[in-house]
Structure formats: C-alpha cells, structure tokens
Design a protein around this nucleic acid. Structure first.
Length: 580
RNA sequence: CGGGGCGUGGCGCAGCUUGGUAGCGCGCUUGCUUUGGGAGCAAGAAGUCGCAGGUUCAAAUCCUGUCGCCCCGACCA
C-alpha cells in the first residue's frame, strides 16, 4: 500500500472543531479521519476508513481463530422479530423505527439477539449440530438520548456481536471462556489498556458477565480496582464486604427528642450535643423510600432502603440491584398515601407492621446498633439494633462506592477510576431460547433447551478509545497494528528530496510495508512536520536538508526519538523499525 | 426529559449592549519570493448573518415564535 499525500483525500485542520470536547474527537477530526454529518453520526475519510478496517481485521482474525463463524444480518429489520421478545416496545425511544411504503413497521437493528436465535433455530435441530458460535461485524443503530464525544458514543456505530449456542451450562462456560481469551488477544493487539471488570447483566438477563473497560478520564463508566489481588468491577457490580455480626449486648432502644434535624449532619450534631453519644454520620441509619415499577405492567412496589448515614444511595447501583424493576423517586403524594412513613424520620422499627419491604446495606449486620428515625416528626431513636428492633428483609447493593472502600476479595482498599466499555461478555442463559423455543433434539428423542452467550466489541468505539489513550500534545500516536500505514516518509526541501522520498516509498512498498509519502510540492517543512505528528503514524522517515550529505532522519512518533541515518541504509532501517 | 451555552463564507471567531457599508484569522485561487518547524508580499473567489413573522425609512443587531447544535445529569458497544 502506498498513499501519496499529493493526491490523498485529506485536509487537516489547524484548530479544534468547536463541537469537540474530548481528545479523540478533536484529533480524529483535526487529522482528517472523520467528519460529522449529524449528532452521533460520522463519515470516515480515507485514513479513518483504513484504521477502522484494521480494527475490524484484528477482531475478525481473532473471532475466526476461536472458531466462530461470520454471518451478516441486515441492519433494516421487520418488526415481528422484535415483537416476539417484547423488545419492540421494551427498547423504547432508543429504537430507530420506520415504516415502509405499505405502512409496515421496520426498525434499524440496535442489537441482533433475535436474528441470531432465529437463524440457528431455522437451520439446526439436532444435538449433534451443537455447539456453534456465530458472529457478525455490523452497523448498529441506537437513537441515544444523548450521543456525545464524537465517535465514542454515536447513534450509528460498528459493533462485533457474537452468540454462542450450547446444550448445557458447562458448554456455555467453555464458550464464554473462549470469548474471554479472544477478547484479551483482540484488545492486546489493538494496543488498548483495559481492565476486565465484573459487571451486572442488567436488563439483558443472564448470569455471569464481565466488561472490558478502557481506563480513561473521559470514560462514562465507573469501576473499582484492587491493586493487591487484581479484583476489578464495574461500580454497579461491586459487592460490599460486611463486617462480622455484633454479639455484644446493646443498650435498650431509646427515643430522643431531635427537633429541626432534617439532615444527617444536623442530627449528629444535635445528638452529640444533647445526649453525649459521640456518634458520627456512619453510626446513623438513613432510610430512603423508593418505588419500584415492574416494566410492562402497572405494578409498583414500595421499598425502603437502609444505608449508613455517611453514604448516599447511588441511583445507578440501585437500578442495577432492582433490575429488571425500575426504581423511581418517592414523591410527596406517595408519602401522603403512606401516613406510616414520616418523611425525614423514617425508622425501620415499623416497616414490618406496615408490610413494606426493607432492604439494608450489607454493613447493617445483625447486632449492629444505629441512630435512626423514630417514625415521629422531630424524634429519632438510638440503640436501634438490627435483628432485635427490626428485621431486614435482605441486603441490597445501593450505597455509593468510595475510593478506599475495602476489596470484597482481599480487604485491601479499592481505587476508583473511569473507563470506556469496549467489550462485554456474558452468559445469557435461556431467555432468548425460551422466547424463540430454540431446542435441539437430544439423543433420547427429547428436546434440549439451548443456552446462549452474548458477546460484543465496540469496533468503531475502539478506534476512538485508541485515540483517547494514545495521543500527545502534537497529535495521534497509533499502534502499528491499526495505524493507517507503517511509515510516513516526509520529503522536504528544494532539491530532489521529494523524488528521493518517493523512490524510497516505492521500495518500501515493494518490500511489503504500508507507506504514506508526503510528496506535496511547495509545502513548507513546518506544515509537513505538523501534519505528520497529527496523523500519528508510528515511524517517520524524513528526507530533507541532509540529503546532500546522504543523510536521512528516522523518527519514532510515540517515543519522539530521532536519529540521523545514512540514506543508503534508510530502507533497511525503516524495515527493521517496522518489524520490531 | 431536567439544567447551561451557542447558531455570522469550508473551519475557528468578532460585530449585537447603543439598528445605518458584514469584518478578522485559518484554509482556498493566481503571481513572485521562501524551504528543518503550521513562511512573506501582492491580487482574488467565497456569506439567504439557522428559519419564520413583527417593529422601523432602515434589522446580523430590537421583539415574538420556531428549528437545530454542543455541554452537564438519568440510558449503553
């Protein structure tokens, strides 16, 4: 491959685009890789298209290597496939819907579980056919509430999605492990820094689930990591380690007059001042009321959640914890309907008699004593003991996570970072097979319900993530595997530098390298150097002022090292650099 | 959907308070000079000032409405 900048369809921008905020967005636009056409929708210019194809190639090679077989579904799909699983309505506004000329409903596929399941059902019927894993690399459409950060979160994006079909749980585990290994190879080859995090399976249903998160300040996901034992988890999936149960005898419950103490801080101050208890916010028990709506029905359950007073309820964690239920704020009118719940002074002592479910943070262990509401305006209760004065219906992971919280596996302090989800693997189980009635006929003549795994890689997002993780003040610094070319040869000077640069470019191309040569006449050296740095090819060879002395300059874009080399050795030295 | 900001040549912006000739930088075209860090000089091309209505002798500027976009929060590869 030999690209000549004199004819390459490329225009670099000197200034950041006004609508870009994150580095990958700014740089990909400035370097002429992508252009915006609508919110969350981008065109790929020649260099960007090459990078995207390179990522695609890596993903495809690794999927093929693990034995998955590539298929391709349409992006334009009829409604009925998504009707069977209820997702035509469940997916809500995120689904791009359209009608054909006859008025029939269609959609642009946001994901393809239904299609894969249906395809396997149509072709396979015997246990001898299984297991099988299929994948596709496809453009997906999601009408995101808020597309953002350029290509990082678009409404149209390229995704590799695959599905494994197995006859039993062990088979599913094996398929899952194979994917895990394939993903590790993929992201290693792409040069992405990532963590494999425990995840919630969320609305998709299913059990084991892990996310591949690329640590990045602009990331939208929060994850914790333990630097001692290697544990990592999405914030929603972190489990809280419970302290041991308290066996010591506790004083009897005591109701205290606590007027004007609407906040935890005011309560703590008041109690310490008037009753000398010496408590901290962590000794109080804060009780939050929420409504949990069951999707697709009118059923709404009232739920009270007890968390230590020094912590907020993390709504995302709460959502994950009550999934597939949808938590909603308990409004003033809801309080009006539940006179037993005294806003600001709720204590768990009365919940059982009110018939309200009470779930507590795991720190609220049996025997622990708390200062909490007394279910009367202006009154709180002290020495309220779990297991004695109230009986929780269970625990819930809804309290916020903080840096320094203890690792659930080894009890070392956890760190908190942000990351971008680039891959997600999980064991779906039989939800879609159930919906589709996907069975294999077993050796005994009886049907076996197939169990599935679902696995995704954000292909176009990976391009942005690499740009996000690998750039400097001057521009992009692609890893060789996905760079638009191996080497950028810059010819600059008023003698025959451009001719020589072109000759070397042709020689390197014939030796199997992918080459970009800057053969633009009359363009000043500064412009060429700046463009070279912006574009970010890993190796740069400059044929410039040293030509008369038979000298070229070899640069490494990422490290910034520069070396003068004899022109006669240029081809070999570039080859060596590109093969290192 | 809630909150904030912005719509002016291809890109980045000023002008709007106090109505009166549409301006700057980059990019683009032509010529000459320049060639190791986004060159210089000269001459050019290119704008329904988001859209609609209103006020006015006169609207980018004032008023009303409307559309769109970006950013921050609830959703996800």
């Amino acid at each position: 491959m030999l690209l000549r900048m004199s004819t390459l369809f490329l225009r670099t921008l000197r200034e950041d685009p006004a609508d870009a905020e994150v580095p990958s967005h700014k740089l990909l636009v400035r370097a002429g890789y992508i252009r915006r056409v609508a919110p969350g929708i981008y065109s790929w210019l020649p260099l960007g298209k090459i990078v995207l194809e390179n990522v695609t190639r890596v993903v495809r090679e690794e999927m093929d290597r693990m034995g998955a077989q590539e298929v391709l579904f349409p992006a334009l799909l009829p409604r009925d496939y998504y009707e069977a699983t209820g997702r035509w309505t469940e997916y809500g506004d995120t689904l791009f819907r359209l009608k054909d000329r006859k008025g029939s409903d269609y959609l642009l596929g946001p994901t393809h579980e239904e299609m894969f399941t249906d395809m396997v059902k149509g072709e396979y019927s015997s246990y001898k056919d299984y297991p099988v894993t299929l994948y596709q690399i496809q453009t997906k459409y999601r009408d995101e509430a808020r597309p953002r950060a350029g290509i990082l979160r678009g409404r149209e994006f390229v995704m590799k999605d695959s599905y494994s079909f197995d006859l039993d749980d062990d088979g599913l585990k094996h398929s899952y492990e194979q994917h895990r290994e394939a993903y590790i190879r993929i992201f290693d080859r792409l040069g992405i820094d990532y963590r494999i995090c425990f995840a919630m399976s969320g609305a998709m249903g299913g059990s084991a689930s892990e996310e591949f998160l690329a640590p990045c300040p602009t990331g939208e996901d929060t994850f914790v990591a333990c630097h001692n034992c290697g544990y990592a988890a999405n914030a929603e999936a972190v489990t809280t380690s419970a302290p041991p149960a308290v066996t010591a005898e506790q004083p009897a419950l005591e109701v205290l007059d606590t007027p004007d103490t609407p906040t935890i801080e005011s309560l703590v101050d008041h109690v310490n001042e008037h009753f000398g208890l010496g408590i901290t916010p962590a000794d109080t028990l804060k009780n939050i009321v929420v409504k949990v709506r069951t999707p697709g029905s009118d059923k709404v359950e009232t739920l009270v959640i007890g968390v230590p007073g020094d912590r907020e309820v993390d709504f995302k964690r709460l959502e994950a914890a009550v999934a597939p239920g949808i938590p909603e704020i308990f409004e003033a009118e809801d309080f009006a309907r539940h006179p037993g719940l005294v806003r600001g002074y709720i204590g768990p002592q009365v919940l059982a008699s009110l018939g309200i479910t009470y779930l507590v943070d795991p720190r609220v262990v049996t025997g622990s004593a708390w200062v909490t509401g007394a279910n009367e305006p202006g009154k709180h209760a002290a020495h309220v003991v779990a297991g004695r004065d109230f009986q929780p219906d269970g625990t819930i992971e809804a309290a916020e996570i903080r840096a320094g919280d203890l690792c659930p596996r080894c009890a070392h302090p956890l760190s908190i970072d942000r990351g971008i989800e680039i891959g997600h693997i999980f064991q779906l189980g039989r939800k879609y097979a159930d919906a589709a009635g996907l069975d294999a006929l077993g050796p005994d003549g009886k049907p076996i319900r197939v169990t599935m795994g679902s696995y995704g890689v954000g292909v176009s997002r990976a391009v942005a993530v690499v740009a996000e993780q690998r750039h400097d003040a001057l521009g992009l610094t692609w890893p060789r595997e996905i760079a638009p070319a191996d080497v950028h040869i810059v010819g600059t000077g008023k003698e025959n530098q451009i001719e020589v640069a072109t000759q070397i470019a042709e020689e390197l191309e014939s030796r199997g390298l992918r080459v970009l040569v800057d053969d633009r006449p009359g363009v000043s050296p500064g412009v060429k150097f700046k463009d070279s740095e912006l574009l970010g090819l890993p190796t740069v060879l400059i044929i410039g002022r040293g030509l008369a002395q038979g000298v070229a300059e070899l640069r490494d874009r990422a490290t910034g090292t520069k070396e003068e080399i004899p022109l006669a050795e240029a081809v070999d030295r570039v080859l060596a650099a590109c093969q290192a």
